[in-house]
Design a binder for these strands. Structure first.
Length: 895
DNA sequence: CGTGTGTGGTAG
DNA sequence: ATCGCTACCACACACG
């Protein structure tokens, strides 16, 4: 049963409300159209009759990021008689789905549809006819087994219960049915889409919403999943109802109850309770299945309405829950007759009425002067009600009576701590304690938060949605492996999944954390929950990836190394998580050529962990073509290292005997470790020489073959270098040891280094070399560096950079530093590391020194320096730095 | 003492 | 059967 009144509020969007809106909804309008409008954009006026109308019977849904971009694809399709839509409404019959990749959710959804790559559109247009979709099927990409699903009935293949055999499919099935996964995904998506919106708001309306006049509303659907799932079973609405994955009608199920209605709650049933236990409490409990699509529809109705009434800011909390700043909305209603509280009441009631009309589900609304109060009010408002907490008397009373556990950021652990150590159960209990006492009990930061809570202070600013800092994927259900091979299969699929997630948001990362859940010694082999993890020990290990990447194979190589290093029996594994951090946007990073010295810095810990593996990490990975591009002395160093490696290895163990490496897997592993570009080069090179790609020659063979295949003059040079006196090499090594690679040298040295290396060597290749080689290379260009420094750099710039890090600069220093940075990199674009340092410096200037003007003027100066610069990357950087200043100064600065 | 890493907590 | 996710913060501790 679809929400009945969507069309009404869609019309209202163009009506009176839109004009009063203090927000510009242009961007958001696009998002909303994309996400949830029921309108179909049919570009009939764009039909070009000169073109063959090959798409005339096609209705194409363009999903997500594509190349060419969706707009261009739509143009191609519509100019040739087709219809393209940017969203699905469940009613329009779509003939084709155009996508580069699909989330598991969508994969599930589109399983029976023609899902094709964007290239199909392009190629068909070029061919003047519809090409067979077979070659463009996206399902091929996702996994071998998916092809079957296209040709065979869906139900024929039972989805696997466990993760071991058909990993791709398992992951797909798992996420498709996981409510927590959906919640997380929705939240991320919502935050992402509201982020740009908020930026626009902040720059335009920066100071209009004063903190002391702020009115926050916390809006939340009542038992969201249960309410929405009930829409399709209205006859059950008066019964105790829950939403669960379990299909059985009886028995002691260990399935989670995702959501239950308030009738069920009267029996003592709670969200998260296992179905078996709930049935004991209420044998008549009715089970509903998830209806993720309907949840999205209801959510969209909420968010759409919120935007149409013209709120000052939106912070998505969840798919069914949102914080909004309704200050302007309320103050606009205040007059002689209507008090502020009255206005808030009106707004709340209107919200509730509208949402019920459009979704047939009830919401509750809590209103207060800050997020804390809004949340407390919401709690009192539930279900199906609203509470306005605006006068200080009622705030004091409600806050004081609040049980600690119900406050934001106070969960079971913290509330237990407070109850045991301080005998405090409500906020008023806590008021008796000093800041220091609270901090001693729960930590400095948390203590401060609690101290402020007691005094109705909450500095949560709902206008700020920070950039995403990590992308991760976890599975701790159904993980049961019988062999290391199964574990590896799973890890390959899993890294594909995280790669997909990175690509989906157009980001790459350079740091990997692997988490393993391993059955606790005292836990039974089989957990109480069917295929659950049970009690586990959690082990996390992290490693740099040495470059920004979203490549599944590359990520796998490091992830697998970490898994093997933990050395847990496959049978004991109960959960796996992958997390990627140190992210950059791909469009930003692409043109940066990965000039990131920070990635080179192998931290002490990593050095230790990888000690001994340094030599076997790299040597066989250098491809002929790559090697021959390197400066001669660099090649020599590689050769030397290989030689040393052989000697050392011969004295100890063969690689096969290493406890970490699995014999049959070593070679593919080595290949998989390589960056995409190099891997391709190697495969090509080996193929040219008629060898199999999947089994690389032994290390020594590669060595010899590569060497033999080198052009004569290069070989000569290598031999010359190779024969140089040991002493000279030692000297260089000493120099290398003396030169630290750190942020300070980044700026001044990279430019020089690049010149020294010439255009032939890319950063990716350089970065894969052992660190000592990199250091040596830098040292070799020491002379050049000196010269360059004298000519090309402003005097004192290095010092300035050092000061920047140590924060001992005046405004002139800072501006000079920025000038130097721009001068050095105007054409090639900013390097991320330096930007990061500057960002931190700016933040510290404002946060710690309270020195806003230097920060603001610095960024303004940067803008002036780059006036007329064609490089978009610089502008992106400026935008980001401006954003930092805006965030830190509390939105009062307008650039 | 600043920095990085692993662990734990919280939210929905 | 059953789908126990995930981003982010804060903290303790180790490091040199």
């Amino acid at each position: 049963m679809a929400p009945p009144k969507i069309s009404d509020w869609t019309k209202a969007k163009n009506g009176t409300n839109a004009n009063k809106s203090p927000l510009k909804f242009d961007d958001f309008g696009i998002y909303m159209r994309h996400k949830q409008s029921k309108l179909v954009e049919i570009c009939k006026d764009k039909v070009d009759n000169a073109l063959p109308q090959i798409f005339k019977d096609c209705i194409c849904y363009i999903n997500g990021y594509t190349s060419p971009d969706p707009r261009e694809l739509a143009e191609i399709i519509s100019s040739r008689g087709g219809v393209s839509i940017q969203f699905l409404n469940g009613k329009t019959a779509v003939t084709h789905i155009i996508a580069t990749q699909l989330t598991p959710r969508k994969m599930e959804e589109f399983r029976k549809c023609k899902v094709v790559k964007p290239q199909w559109v392009v190629d068909s247009a070029a061919a003047g006819k519809l090409l067979p979709i077979f070659d463009y099927s996206i399902i091929d990409l996702a996994g071998n087994n998916m092809t079957l699903k296209l040709t065979k009935p869906v139900q024929m293949k039972q989805p696997p219960h466990k993760a071991g055999q058909d990993s791709d499919n398992f992951i797909l099935q798992f996420y498709a049915k996981s409510r927590l996964h959906h919640l997380s995904t929705w939240k991320s998506e919502l935050k992402h889409h509201f982020q740009s919106h908020v930026t626009e708001y902040m720059t335009q309306k920066a100071s209009s919403s004063q903190k002391d006049r702020q009115i926050i509303a916390h809006i939340d659907f009542d038992c969201f999943f249960a309410s929405v799932s009930l829409l399709k079973f209205p006859h059950l609405a008066q019964k105790p109802v829950c939403v669960t994955n379990s299909t059985s009608t009886t028995g002691n199920s260990s399935a989670d109850i995702a959501s239950c209605n308030y009738i069920a709650r009267e029996y003592g049933i709670t969200n998260g309770m296992w179905l078996g236990k709930a049935r004991q409490l209420c044998p008549d409990l009715q089970c509903l299945s998830y209806d993720f699509e309907a949840y999205e529809t209801a959510s969209k109705a909420l968010y759409d309405y919120i935007l149409n009434i013209g709120v000052d800011a939106v912070l998505p909390v969840s798919v069914d829950e949102v914080l909004v700043d309704i200050s302007s909305l309320c103050y606009a209603r205040v007059n002689g007759e209507v008090s502020l509280a009255d206005a808030a009441h009106q707004v709340a009631q209107e919200m509730r009425q509208h949402i019920f009309e459009s979704t047939r589900c009830t919401i509750s609304v809590g209103i207060g002067p800050n997020v804390l109060c809004a949340k407390v009010a919401l709690r009192r408002a539930k279900p199906d009600g609203y509470v306005v907490l605006l006068d200080s008397a009622s705030i004091d009373q409600e806050l004081g009576a609040c049980s600690l556990k119900s406050l934001p950021r106070i969960g079971p652990s913290l509330s237990a701590k407070l109850s045991q150590n301080l005998n405090a159960h409500t906020l008023s209990d806590l008021r008796a304690y000093t800041l220091e006492q609270l901090q001693k009990c729960v930590g400095s930061r948390t203590g401060e938060v609690l101290f402020k809570y007691c005094r109705n202070e909450d500095d949560t600013d709902i206008r700020i949605i920070p950039d995403r800092k990590s992308v991760s994927a976890d599975i701790s259900w159904g993980i049961r492996f019988n062999s290391l091979q199964e574990t590896e299969n799973f890890m390959r699929s899993f890294t594909k999944e995280i790669s997909r997630r990175l690509k989906e948001i157009n980001m790459k990362g350079s740091f990997l954390t692997v988490k393993l859940l391993i059955r606790a010694k005292d836990a039974p082999i089989e957990s109480a929950k069917h295929l659950g993890s049970g009690k586990c020990d959690s082990i996390t290990r992290s490693t740099p990836l040495y470059m920004y990447t979203d490549e599944p194979d590359y990520i796998f190589s490091y992830a697998w190394k970490e898994v093997l290093a933990v050395n847990a029996p496959p049978e004991e594994l109960r959960g796996i998580g992958l997390q990627i951090t140190k992210l950059v946007h791909q469009d930003y990073e692409d043109k940066q050529q990965r000039l990131n010295f920070a990635l080179l810095e192998e931290k002490g810990k990593n050095n230790k962990r990888k000690s001994g593996s340094d030599d076997c990490d790299i040597p066989s990975q250098i491809d002929l073509a790559v090697l021959s591009q390197l400066p001669p002395s660099l090649q020599e160093e590689i050769r030397k290292r290989i030689r040393l490696g052989k000697v050392v290895d011969a004295g100890h163990k063969e690689i096969e005997d290493s406890p970490i490496q699995v014999p049959s897997q070593i070679d593919p592993l080595v290949v998989a470790q390589l960056p995409h570009e190099i891997r391709k080069a190697i495969e090509k090179d080996i193929a040219t020489r008629g060898e199999k790609c999947d089994v690389l020659p032994r290390l020594s063979q590669v060595d010899q073959e590569v060497f033999d295949a080198l052009p004569e003059h290069i070989r000569q040079e290598i031999m010359n270098e190779y024969d140089r006196e040991e002493k000279e090499v030692e000297n260089e090594k000493e120099m290398a040891a003396d030169t630290e690679i750190n942020d300070e040298v980044t700026l001044s040295q990279w430019t020089i280094l690049k010149e020294g290396l010439g255009e032939n060597i890319s950063w990716e290749i350089f970065i894969t070399l052992p660190k000592s080689v990199q250091v040596q290379t830098i040292c070799e260009h020491h002379e050049l560096k000196k010269r360059h420094k004298a000519v090309g750099q402003k005097p004192g710039m290095r010092d300035t950079f050092a000061k920047l890090k140590g924060m001992r600069m005046n405004e002139d220093d800072f501006d000079n530093f920025l000038s130097g940075w721009v001068e050095a990199r105007k054409d090639i674009g900013p390097d991320y590391e330096t930007e990061k340092v500057i960002g931190k410096y700016i933040s510290d200037l404002i946060d710690i020194e309270g020195n806003r003007s230097t920060a603001i003027n610095g960024v303004k100066w940067l803008d002036i320096l780059l006036k007329g610069c064609g490089n978009q990357l610089w502008h992106t950087t400026i935008k980001r730095l401006q954003r930092t200043v805006i965030d830190k100064t509390g939105c009062e600065v307008i650039f």
